[in-house]
Design a protein around this nucleic acid. Structure first.
Length: 647
RNA sequence: GCUGACGUAGCUCAAUUGGCAGAGCAGCUGAUUUGUAAUCAGCAGGUUAAGGGUUCGAGUCCCUUCGUCAGCUCCA
């Protein structure tokens, strides 16, 4: 080992330091302000503790509170502070994992009794004490036997320990009374953890495995600055106001009622019209892109789902079988459909297909039913009755890329150009539970990847996230509080054509097997509308707004004129109504604003005389814009036609 | 499905140690005829999720079921 090492700093300068120096020492050498601000260091790209000795030539970057990586370090330490506090209050608690996560951290504990809200308060209090004690986070490298000794009372840690490879460094971190098996890094001392809050506790399976014991997970958030913590908590509050379940109620869009069943959506008129518009939009677009529309039964013989392979794999998520219909064999049972692919497959197979026919694109906006686990249901975002904008493309292998290209193009038109969503693309590869051999999977996965690359799209890999019959491209949208939900899905399938023995006649006059692509652009209209509600906070673009114009006569005297304006709008295809309720104008303006109606058109004495309307556009600075009624109608019609995001 | 919390009028929420189920908004009726975010008055609205138990007495305590929420698992 050399006595002196070279430390390269981000500004390009190189310092020579004694081997075994630390990032803290370098920071101090550079200047006292940097030393005070230092939280951690990036050493050759990895984040390290400030006090970990550096023994080789390195690139070094001192991380201060400004660096996002530093925040992650802080939160990881906050998790240790949490565990320290829990161990003080519940000495028998066994410790699981405690990582930093987006916006915060958690720690899992095995305890005989779940934590109560009062426990959380006490723990938070104790965390404050741990922070004030300002314990140094001390890193120590130990051998396996030493680690076994230290964690002999923590079976969860021992289990993790045994998984570590022989070439891996085993490190432990202690802060005051608490010791944890941990890779680190950490902030120098618990005193850095000043601004935090415990958010909630919930059960979580050990190692995320539902066959193993349930631990108690405590979630919290931590920030360097008090203002950041407060801003985050405020953001959570604001997000709650965008919650589609709250807005759905306020705007009378839909309801979920116990009498109907969990996960079953009742679309009220104002919500149904949104679904109707989305449906028209996508169906028109599909017809332009040479898709064909089909309709297939909601209930079919269950044999179909055995043949497709769905029932053996996903029986618990299908609704139970129904009795046979009269005249059917006794053993012919029926199932409500959880997906459309077997039916579309049969439409394809209903006649001979030539290579000249391909691709065959069959689309159906259809309701399917899935008996999802009760604990997973969530407003519109996870339901048991799903309205899928489903389609299946049957094509030759050499057509896959073009088809995927067109689907991704359509996806971008819908998500980005039309609604301004930001989305994340994942390529999901073969899962454990799958049918078909690895060679076929390999070909399929590569085909998707090639299409993505050709489009130069940024995407992540979701290892093992594929469907049981093939790999897929998933696109995820975020809800108001940042949770991701799968919207668009594009899935390649070599299995179903096999199972249904699909064929086409090639130019060689021989039978060939087509490839099948499943895809849904919205995903489900329930989930998509849910995301739209949160995205727009209920203030939909004009073309989607359930009520596009509300005409307000100031007094009864203008009621007739208001109805004429309304009739003209209706005739032009605008969803308009008259609010001539016996209430003040102020009251009705307020009501229209709260219902997020894009345009309130006020008709008073002056307007009647001039044949004009005083338009109040939603959210506009100028509260009154007087214009001829015909001009207003033109403006609304244009906004609808162009699917404008602005009113 | 699992762990925990919760469930009071259409909505948002009160109801002291177990002691007469309430308010605001919405709704209805009437008055008012309104110029850009709540006019006034009156009326009506409940098997306190459902079922069982403890008690002189249960919205409140206990049990079961259903549902909701958070998280885990799952998510064709």
């Amino acid at each position: 080992m050399p006595d002196a090492i070279k430390i390269s700093l981000p500004d390009g300068s190189v310092r020579t330091e004694p081997a075994g120096t630390t990032a803290r020492a370098v920071a101090e050498a550079i200047g006292p302000r940097l030393a005070r601000a230092a939280v951690a260091a990036r050493v050759n790209g990895d984040v390290w503790d400030l006090d970990r000795p550096i023994r080789e030539d390195t690139d070094l970057e001192i991380l201060t509170e400004q660096d996002p990586a530093a925040l992650e370090v802080l939160r990881h330490t906050a998790a240790h502070v949490l565990a320290t506090a829990v161990r003080e209050l519940f000495p028998d608690a066994r410790i699981g994992f405690g990582p930093a996560i987006a916006d915060g951290f958690y720690y899992d504990f095995e305890v005989p009794q779940p934590f109560t809200p009062e426990d959380l308060e006490a723990i938070e209090q104790k965390m404050q004490e741990v922070a004030e004690s300002d314990y140094a986070l001390v890193r120590e490298e130990v051998d396996r036997q030493g680690a076994r000794e230290r964690f002999k009372d923590d079976p969860l840690k021992l289990e993790r320990l045994e998984e570590l490879g022989d070439d891996e460094t085993i490190s432990v971190y202690s802060d005051g009374p608490f010791v944890d098996l941990c890779r680190g890094p950490h902030v120098p001392s618990t005193g850095k953890v000043k601004h935090f809050k415990l958010l909630h506790a919930a059960g979580a399976y050990w190692r995320g495995d539902s066959r193993r014991q349930m631990l108690q997970r405590i979630y919290g958030t931590a920030w360097f600055k008090k203002a950041d913590l407060e801003a985050y908590l405020h953001r959570l509050e604001e997000a709650e106001k965008r919650d589609h379940r709250v807005i759905g109620k306020q705007l009378d869009l839909f309801s979920i009622q116990e009498d109907v069943g969990p996960g079953m959506i009742l679309w009220h008129p104002r919500g149904a019209i949104i679904q109707h518009e989305l449906r028209r939009f996508i169906e028109d677009e599909l017809l332009k892109r040479r898709y064909d529309l089909v309709f297939t039964p909601h209930v079919t013989r269950e044999e179909l789902f055995f043949r497709s392979g769905h029932l053996p794999h996903y029986e618990e998520q299908q609704f139970p079988a129904m009795a046979a219909g009269e005249g059917d064999a006794d053993d012919a049972r029926y199932r409500v459909k959880p997906m459309n692919c077997p039916m579309h497959t049969l439409v394809y197979a209903a006649r001979q297909r030539s290579y000249r026919d391909l691709p065959v694109r069959l689309a159906e906006v259809a309701n399917v039913y899935r008996n999802e686990l009760s604990g997973t249901l969530h407003g519109l975002l996870r339901v048991r009755m799903l309205t899928m904008d489903d389609a299946h493309i049957f094509c030759r292998e050499d057509q896959i890329e073009d088809e995927i290209f067109d689907m991704l193009d359509l996806t971008d038109l819908v998500l980005n150009k039309t609604f301004g969503f930001e989305y994340r693309i994942d390529l999901a590869t073969r899962p454990e539970k799958k049918i078909g051999d690895d060679a076929a999977w390999e070909v399929a996965e590569q085909a998707l990847e090639r299409a993505l690359k050709r489009l130069d799209l940024t995407y992540g890999i979701d290892e093992g996230g594929g469907a049981f019959y093939g790999p897929k491209i998933d696109i995820k949208l975020r809800d108001a509080i940042g949770r991701e939900w799968q919207g668009t899905t594009i899935q390649l399938d070599y299995q179903l054509p096999e199972r249904f023995e699909l064929e086409y006649t090639g130019s060689d006059n021989k039978p060939h097997r087509p490839v099948m692509i499943h895809r849904a652009i919205f995903g489900t209209l329930e989930r998509f509308v849910g995301c739209l509600i949160e995205h727009f906070a209920g203030a939909f673009p004009v073309w989607l707004a359930p009520e596009q114009v509300r005409v307000l006569p100031i007094t009864e005297e203008q009621a007739e004129a208001a109805r004429a304006v309304d009739a003209a709008l209706r005739a032009a295809g605008v969803r308009s109504s008259v609010d001539d309720r016996n209430d003040t104008l102020n009251y009705r303006v307020r009501d229209g604003e709260l219902m997020k109606v894009p345009y309130l058109a006020v008709v008073g004495k002056r307007e009647v005389e001039q044949g004009s309307v005083a338009v109040r556009a939603r959210g506009a600075k100028q509260k009154q814009e007087v214009m001829p009624a015909a001009e207003f109608t033109q403006r609304v019609v244009e906004r609808i036609r162009s699917k404008a995001l602005e009113v």
